[in-house]
Nucleic acid binder design. Structure first.
Length: 582
DNA sequence: GTTAGGG
DNA sequence: CCCTAAC
């Protein structure tokens, strides 16, 4: 199965094929999540994913290699939410299992839930609690055991008969449960925790996370037992049943705020967090129930919409996580769904898209990595009051703006970038407006398009790559008027480039200076000037040399004024090269 | 309003 | 590019 985040939709297509091909493919989809210091769950970052790539890869290629048995089991034991802790020393942002995370959340749940919902259904299983705890806490305890029945994983076929007929999961032995697990998920497990096994099997058969820990009866591969609930939307109902049961039963006397109590809550973590994207794709056609179609949790969005993060984490006490990896809105955590595949184009080209919640809107965005690197936008429009909308199948507004290569002069309108619901457009409106006009236009568009209040009508300027001609004009302007006369240069040399502000010129000049300090020496050494990014047109060395000269002259000369330094040679170079690049 | 600098 | 202090 495909574990790559960028293929969030694999479950529908390739996975089945893989399964059929290999027979042992794991139909469970794992989600990598990150637990921030404040306990918030966020989708794993790309970096996180990379760290586990080998994991996922291993699993994909061949199931549980012996060497990795520990880790694989860790995945399983934790309902596939594995995670690793990259650097514990800083203690800031750590990765851990969802189980552990849910522990933290458990206390809250306990507070909110009524304690009289205590059930005794789990009592007979409480003996497994210790085992479970042991499993969860110290890996390698059980996975090193060599139970003959659990060793020949890849070769033999699962015994599907274990679930045939009417079977009460409670009556099964651990081994039988393991077999049932295997029949359900198509893979082996070494877990000996009955509760866990039963829950996992039940979840697998119902394709739901919301299952009781015991009392389930399987009949013909389907859960017919009592508490097999499928309605995830019924929160109240869920809070009263299996979820409560486990944690309260263990410590019947206390009110549920004991750490241990909340610990065992972890067993039902899916209930509370619902972030466990166990996706039981059906390998055998009839093994898994299909009654829970809309329960499937898709892989999380890979990118962060940091603009939403503050909504969720403004009050968290532990604020040592990197701002760039702040947790997204909970809604975003839970709901990002991957639309199976969207067909576009006359050729039937299929592009994966995912449905994402962007500022409260349901939108489809290309399933690509688009993690923002900079700090969070401050002026992002808050759509917090706008609930998730019904996804429009036909209209799929994209927040992506397609960058249009700057032709040349004029005809540039600073777009209103990243306004939600703004349909992507490739056509630049042929209208030049000055900076102020742009602001106004932005405000207008925003107010027209989106009802929610916009903070200040400020949106990020549409990124425009600097063209060579612009660079040449800038260099020319600096040579003519001097560095620092940005306003002047803008007025006189960039009259037709209305979208270039004096600040832009200044920034670009600064970047050019930097470029001369980095690129030029490298080129002299014959080294490859930067990692050649074909999409970025390198600035010709001649221009860089001019920049360097101008910079040195004007910096050392101190009070550089006007055209004094405009040497004939430079002028010639500029003219020649400039016209050539235009 | 501009400019310089940090982010 | 954004933001902001300092002119």
């Amino acid at each position: 199965m495909e574990m790559d985040d960028s293929h969030g939709t694999m479950v529908n297509k390739s996975e089945e094929n893989d399964f059929e091909k290999k027979g042992t493919s794991d139909p469970v989809v794992y989600q990598l999540v990150r637990v921030e210091g404040d306990g918030t769950l966020v989708p794993a970052t790309e970096d996180d994913v990379l760290q586990f790539e080998h994991f996922l890869h291993n699993e994909k290629v061949d199931l549980p290699p012996i060497e990795d048995a520990d880790h694989v089991e860790e995945f399983f034991n934790n309902d596939c939410m594995l995670l690793k802790k990259p650097d514990l020393e800083d203690g800031s942002s750590k990765l851990e299992t969802v189980e552990a995370h849910t522990q933290k959340l458990g206390a809250n749940l306990e507070d909110n839930a009524s304690t009289e919902t205590t059930k005794s259904t789990v009592l007979n299983d409480s003996c497994c609690a210790e085992k479970y705890k042991a499993d969860a806490c110290s890996r390698s305890v059980c996975d090193t055991s060599t139970d003959p029945s659990v060793s020949g994983v890849n070769s033999s076929m699962p015994d599907f008969s274990i679930l045939r007929g009417e079977v009460c999961l409670d009556d099964l032995t651990i081994r039988e449960l393991q077999e049932a697990f295997r029949a359900t998920f198509g893979r082996q497990t070494n877990v000996k925790d009955k509760i866990w096994l039963k829950r996992r099997i039940t979840m697998g058969l119902t394709n739901s996370y919301d299952v009781p820990s015991s009392g389930c009866v399987v009949k013909d591969y389907k859960i017919v037992g009592k508490d097999a609930k499928n309605d995830m939307s019924d929160m109240d109902e869920r809070a009263k049943t299996g979820l409560r049961a486990t944690s309260v039963v263990i410590y019947p006397g206390n009110e549920g705020d004991s750490p241990s109590s909340s610990y065992y809550q972890s067993e039902d973590q899916e209930d509370s967090s619902k972030r466990v994207p166990i996706h039981n794709d059906e390998p055998q056609g009839n093994l898994l129930g299909e009654q829970c179609t809309d329960k499937r949790t898709r892989k999380p969005t890979k990118r962060y919409i940091e603009e939403l993060s503050d909504i969720e984490t403004h009050d968290s006490t532990v604020k040592n996580s990197s701002p760039a990896k702040r947790p997204a809105h909970d809604e975003l955590l839970m709901n990002p769904r991957v639309a199976p595949f969207n067909e576009t184009g006359s050729l039937g080209t299929i592009y994966p898209t995912r449905k994402d919640t962007f500022g409260g809107f349901s939108v489809h965005v290309p399933y690509v990595s688009r993690m923002r690197r900079g700090r969070p936008r401050k002026d992002f429009i808050s759509f917090a009051d706008k609930g998730p909308s019904v996804e429009p199948k036909g209209i799929q507004p994209s927040v992506e703006m397609i960058l249009v290569k700057d032709g040349d002069k004029g005809n540039h309108l600073r777009k209103v970038p990243e306004v939600p619901l703004k349909v992507s457009s490739e056509n630049e409106h042929a209208e030049a407006v000055d900076s102020k006009g742009v602001r106004n236009l932005q405000a207008k568009v925003c107010s027209a398009v989106s009802k929610p209040k916009i903070k200040h009508g400020l949106t990020r300027k549409h990124h425009r790559a600097w063209t060579l001609s612009e660079v040449v004009k800038l260099v020319d302007g600096v040579a003519r008027y001097g560095a620092g006369k940005w306003s002047e240069i803008r007025k006189l040399s960039f009259a037709s480039y209305s979208y270039r502000t004096s600040v832009d010129l200044k920034d670009k000049w600064r970047n050019l200076i930097r470029a001369t300090q980095t690129q030029l020496p490298a080129q002299k050494d014959g080294a490859c000037p930067r990692k050649t990014n074909p999409s970025i047109i390198p600035i010709p060395p001649s221009i860089l040399l001019r920049v360097k000269e101008l910079h040195e002259l004007q910096s050392q000369g101190g009070g550089f004024t006007a055209p004094v330094k405009f040497s004939g040679q430079d002028g010639k170079v500029l003219q020649g090269k400039g016209s050539g690049f235009l």
